[in-house]
Amino acid sequence: MRLRCPLCGERDRREFTYKGAAVALDRPATEAWSADWDDYLHNRANPAGETRDLWQHAAGCGAWLVVTRDTVTHSIADVRLARGEGTA
């Protein structure tokens, strides 16, 4: 498996670590436990098909990336920095 880091180019999967669904970016603002928090931490659409998930180019530039990917075919449609044009 190979991913195209927006900063470093195409690299082997070995250089990346994985964090799961990109919903992790949408952290609830509340400090009290709620159904939103339960959803945020636990409940997942878990699609068999296109998904957006988080990877870090850990053994490269360190950038956190949002990867649009197909969980059935493993084809990769898009890779971008987790926070748009934010400096990584």
């Binding site: 498996m1 670590t17 994985y18 878990n46 068999a48 990917r69 969980t71 059935v72």
Partner: peptide, 13 residues
């Protein structure tokens, strides 16, 4: 393999 997948097949690493 450590990424969400329904492919029932893995990768080399």
């Amino acid at each position: 393999d450590f990424y969400a997948s329904y492919a029932a097949r893995g990768n080399l690493p």
